[in-house]
């Protein structure tokens, strides 16, 4: 059973922002697949659900004037995965969307909701008074930590659950946000908040703010992108270890680009160490292996997740070799 709440289907962004501003217990709802789980688990309180589904213009994928693409926040993951333009110009995002969750959840979940997901840590979702929920400790440190982070943890050791977010950081996407003071744009790379900055939030969004669209820049010449993910179940699951690549090539040589990890850190994790290890080089076996090792140099596992280090080295190596051959 869900806790009792009232429900409003906003018909404009202004109305949605006003509803969120006027009520501390209001929560924004797109597809609902993450929100309903959080409400059932009583992760946070909610007295009013503000649905965005009645607002025109938040859905769909369109070319921008400068050759990029804009994706409305309410576009379903299934639509992102199947879109011909995304598949052609940003295959890393199409792969991330296509490998995410189950077919049913891809039909329900939206891209805006996917990048704003709450962590899946079982202590956070469970009946534990953890640091992220205002408690004093992270129970994963002394407890069951096999799915927790190995990079970027500080006090709290969740991993960010999204597959599309690392692909969007790699592709240098921008998030458009509407709020009380109008609209603003934030690069995906700056959208997320690490626990050492503020352990109570995952993104820079204020409670009255709403993600309205994601804008992808026009792919640079020689750009290739991919997403590789290792999961515990073959059918579907969150990433144990994943890597999003968006690399520019000149011939066989990498000239620029980003390597972004999923399942590694409380945010999508850009590995500048791995990027440094490959830029200016051809992606041969030695370079790919060196990049995998470089990405894990600063990794600090908890008691139960040390396996992630060789797993990440392997998946990074594999992903780099595959994109080098593409």
């Amino acid at each position: 059973m869900l806790p009792k709440f009232s429900y409003v289907r906003a018909t404009s962004l202004d109305e949605a922002v006003r509803l969120l501003s006027s009520d501390d217990g209001a929560r924004v709802c797109a597809g609902g697949s993450d929100l309903l789980g959080c409400l059932r688990d009583q992760v946070f309180e909610c007295s009013r659900v503000v649905s965005l589904t009645g607002i025109d213009g938040l859905r769909g994928i369109a070319r921008t004037r400068d050759g990029g693409v804009r994706i409305g926040a309410l576009t379903t993951i299934a639509d992102v995965a199947a879109d011909p333009t995304i598949n052609q110009s940003y295959p890393g995002l199409a792969q991330a969307a296509g490998e995410l969750a189950s077919p049913q959840l891809r039909n329900q979940g939206t891209i805006g909701g996917n990048i704003c997901q709450k962590p899946r840590c079982w202590y956070y979702r469970g009946d534990f008074d953890c640091l992220r929920k205002g408690g004093t400790t992270c129970h994963a440190v002394a407890g069951e930590s096999e799915f927790h982070c190995i990079l970027g943890g500080a006090g709290c050791f969740v991993v960010h659950p999204s597959d599309t977010a690392p692909a969007l950081v790699a592709l240098q996407a921008t998030v458009r946000i509407a709020g009380r003071r109008g609209t603003r744009s934030v690069p995906m790379e700056e959208f997320y908040v690490l626990p050492n900055q503020d352990v109570r939030r995952e993104t820079v969004l204020e409670p009255h703010e709403i993600v309205t669209e994601i804008v992808l820049p026009r792919p640079a010449a020689g750009m290739r992108s991919s997403y590789h993910k290792v999961r515990a179940r073959g059918a579907w699951d969150f990433a144990l270890a994943g890597v999003a690549l968006a690399l520019q090539f000149s011939g066989n040589r990498v000239t620029a680009g980003r390597v972004v990890l999923s399942g590694a850190a409380p945010t999508p994790w850009r590995s500048r160490e791995a990027e440094e290890a490959i830029i200016g080089k051809q992606l041969d076996a030695a370079t790919a292996a060196a990049a995998g090792r470089a990405a894990m140099e600063d990794a600090v596992p908890l008691r139960r997740n040390g396996y992630k280090i060789p797993l990440f080295q392997g998946v990074i190596e594999e992903a780099l070799l595959a994109i080098g051959r593409a």
Binding site: R9, S33, L36, S51, T53, Q104, N107, Q108
Partner: peptide
């Protein structure tokens, strides 16, 4: 099936 597409009815608000 919601408008022909498989969805999880436990994670969909009826009002939506």
């Amino acid at each position: 099936l919601l408008d022909g597409q498989p969805v999880l009815s436990c994670l969909a608000l009826a009002l939506a």
